[in-house]
Design a protein around this nucleic acid. Sequence first.
DNA 1: GATGAATGAGACTTCATTCAT
DNA 2: CATGAATGAAGTCTCATTCAT
Lengths: 205, 205, 205, 205
Amino acid sequence: MTRQPRKRPRQARSRATVETLLEATTRVLVDHGFEKTTTNRVAEVAGVSVGSLYQYFPNKEALIGALVEVHFTRMRALFASTLAAVADGPLPLAARALIEAVMAGHREHPDLHRVVLEQLPRLGIQAERDGFDAFAVPLIASYIERRRADLRPADAHLAAWVLMRTLQPLVHAAVLRGPEFFADPAFIDEATALVVGYLAPVGEI
Amino acid sequence: MTRQPRKRPRQARSRATVETLLEATTRVLVDHGFEKTTTNRVAEVAGVSVGSLYQYFPNKEALIGALVEVHFTRMRALFASTLAAVADGPLPLAARALIEAVMAGHREHPDLHRVVLEQLPRLGIQAERDGFDAFAVPLIASYIERRRADLRPADAHLAAWVLMRTLQPLVHAAVLRGPEFFADPAFIDEATALVVGYLAPVGEI
Amino acid sequence: MTRQPRKRPRQARSRATVETLLEATTRVLVDHGFEKTTTNRVAEVAGVSVGSLYQYFPNKEALIGALVEVHFTRMRALFASTLAAVADGPLPLAARALIEAVMAGHREHPDLHRVVLEQLPRLGIQAERDGFDAFAVPLIASYIERRRADLRPADAHLAAWVLMRTLQPLVHAAVLRGPEFFADPAFIDEATALVVGYLAPVGEI
Amino acid sequence: MTRQPRKRPRQARSRATVETLLEATTRVLVDHGFEKTTTNRVAEVAGVSVGSLYQYFPNKEALIGALVEVHFTRMRALFASTLAAVADGPLPLAARALIEAVMAGHREHPDLHRVVLEQLPRLGIQAERDGFDAFAVPLIASYIERRRADLRPADAHLAAWVLMRTLQPLVHAAVLRGPEFFADPAFIDEATALVVGYLAPVGEI
DNA sequence: GATGAATGAGACTTCATTCAT
DNA sequence: CATGAATGAAGTCTCATTCAT
């Protein structure tokens, strides 16, 4: 029911336990899949008793939820800092940089990411609102807004949403196709062309 | 394990049973969600015994799988016939027609489709690729190939894949946002712009 | 409940069906083991509908029971005729002949025999009374009785029972050890020594 | 699949639970037979939840297997100590002592033993060999070896195997015939005669 | 007589969660 | 705070048997 951690760990030991539990959850999720991820198994892998798990997470949902939150927190930071760095440069460079940043973010733990993304609907989380979109779409929208003169879209927010809902799955699909495909520069060229062609189809910039 | 129907119904009676079971699955899935969709409940709603369910579907997965298959079969037919009809016209019209066709395909049973789309990952990532991409990507690739002179992409197959992995999630996201958003013509405009901008950014056609 | 065939097949076709069903039962039993022997599978292998199976056998027990009965009928005939042939010769030859006869009887379908013997307790059949012992023990007892002067045992019936309960499992164990062991003449020598040593330990005959 | 206990009980409480479960299994097996012995019924009789049962036994087979193992462990100890005690005395006394020991081992819980013996084939033919033969045959073989001068058999190992595969079923058959027969001293006389006649038919010892 | 679809009780097993120690 | 034994509702699936066609 609740999806907040039952209590904020104040002591160092508690924080360590929580950390260990999240890592164990990751491993079990990646190794065995969601269906076989039981709280008992997670506790065992974490080297902790089930009771302790329930000390920090009121239920299974909260456990997975915390993991998802970690993922999104990392991605938000990555995205925001990259955008800030390239916001004033030419569009093609900015697009390419953002795409590469997101791909880099997934390259680290592709298995975990797949499993996390697959579980979003099940957690009743509106990925769009609670996850990443709610954070990234406004950023992109204001970027488009600022450059409105050079870009095609009339509705900056809608365009930002379209880009998000387009690029994210594209990157995920690329991740899932495996590292050989992933490393192919042709793919990044095409993704960049998609963004640029959508925002500035006449090639003004 | 298996996801094939256990046996083909031969008599009229059993064909009706299979039909009833699929309808019941749809209803239970829509009303209660995947987690609460049990074989017993489906059988009960279908007014049939569990045993009969297992006569035709070796397990729960096969039941959902059959539903997904029905969905994909319809979509493939819809996609192929629409593409055939617009393949010789101007690109923007073709793009718009295809997008509208796919959206129309989802408009019929939006609840069912939402639930089917949410279950795809669980049925194996292959589902999407095998179900639709393997069918649609070659069609699009040959379309691009034929018009290679007018279009930007060098690698027709890669471009077709990018479009598939881009548009499909975009449409799905739109479906999941609900009917109000779905009805907005601005969304179709933007999706069309995405395709056109990607394939012919300088607007030759 | 009942263990009698539901009705005696009078027509040729019926007799053929019963025959086919028994053969199918044998094959399924040997190939899949008792646990996986279902009436539906037997009917399928027999190329007959389950309904037809129940036309001739009131329940599963009766089906297996009929098979067991066939086995015992063959063995009884084999045993009786062999004993009749050697009853008047020297004990060691008689013993050896009987042992070899029983072994020959098992050599034909060792898998079937194993499975039949394993199922005896489950069928609630007192192997000793209904199966083979009730038939063979009196025969052996009367053999001992007739030669009482030359043999050790005081209680012919008890001795016959001991021999039965001794040799039968010994032969079965030999069958289960496989054909290499089975073919070893040393084994038959030992089994013969067992019988002779028991009946006439001082070697008078 | 597995027939090993799922986890070793560490606390006193859990050891008690395992004990209770085995006793309950015994009772249910004796009262209702194998077919009607369900894990739920066993748990209920044990006054424990099914979950607890599955905490210690991965499946029904393992439960029965544990019972059988207890039986064999007792029998092995009984057999080894008896043989050690009589190994240096005269053969007839040794034979009689061993037979009586094994019978005494069965006399304690005849119902349980009957049911265990009936289930052996179902648990895999290996059970007998692994459970007892692999242990007892070498012991008997070395006994024969040591007295090779006084005994008939040339191949000590073969003779030991023949004796095992002969006496064990004989005792079991006696157990299954019920206590009246069991108590008859004439039976033990005959069994002893069987062993002595086989090993030393000329009666030297 | 034959067919085979349908039945449904009941078997085995899992796992999130609690609570005595 | 930690432990881990215990819980038990609930889920998936099987199969002997029946009966309408």
